[in-house]
Amino acid sequence: MISAVNITKTYIMGLVEVHALRGVSVDIKEGDFVGIMGPSGSGKSTLLHILGLLDRPNGGGITISGRDVLKMSDDEKSRFRLSKFGFIFQDYALVPELTALENVIIPAMAKGMPPDECVRTGMKYLGEVGLSDRRGHIPAELSGGEQQRVAIARALVNSPDIIFADEPCANLDSENSRAVLELFKKINEETERTVIMVSHEEWHKKYFERLILLKDGMVSEDKYL
């Protein structure tokens, strides 16, 4: 479903060139639950951003569901992310002025879902992450774990094909982390959705189906567990 070939990414900081990715090729199948791991600075986030169309590589090619995504315009990429991808970030990335429910339904509204259906769907996903009673709270009134669950509900609201998560548990205690991982597992198993998750916690491994290890901007290991 995602096929990335020989991806390179170089950051130029003044006179220094940082080679974040030096020719990464991955082939991710539909329904994979992929963990991307590796030391800090190895290029995990960079790879996730490039696969999620949040950033452009300097070289290489990417096709997603048979489309050459690097040829898309900004608006086409937006549309693609809106309807096919769900994102979960380390710092939750919720809109502070919107309530939990409003945060969840924004992508659905943008996709053109009628208002009452937006609310119904939003409530359904808030229920799935166990936050029905927090729908009217703004992010500042929610704990880190709750915020991350709102972010997960938001990522799911448009029934995406692929979920990208960059260290979603980094700011959570182990109990909340486990809950999030269980949720991912459930989503992946029940709906056959692809989940690509970056992590540096060894114990997360047991949830992954497949592990891609990065080292110095290159794939050092890629195996099904």
Partner: peptide
């Protein structure tokens, strides 16, 4: 930051 978030989750710039 908020603008970045909205763009990341697929909200068009024009919106």
């Amino acid at each position: 930051k908020q603008i970045g978030i909205l763009k990341a989750i697929g909200i068009k710039k024009s919106i």
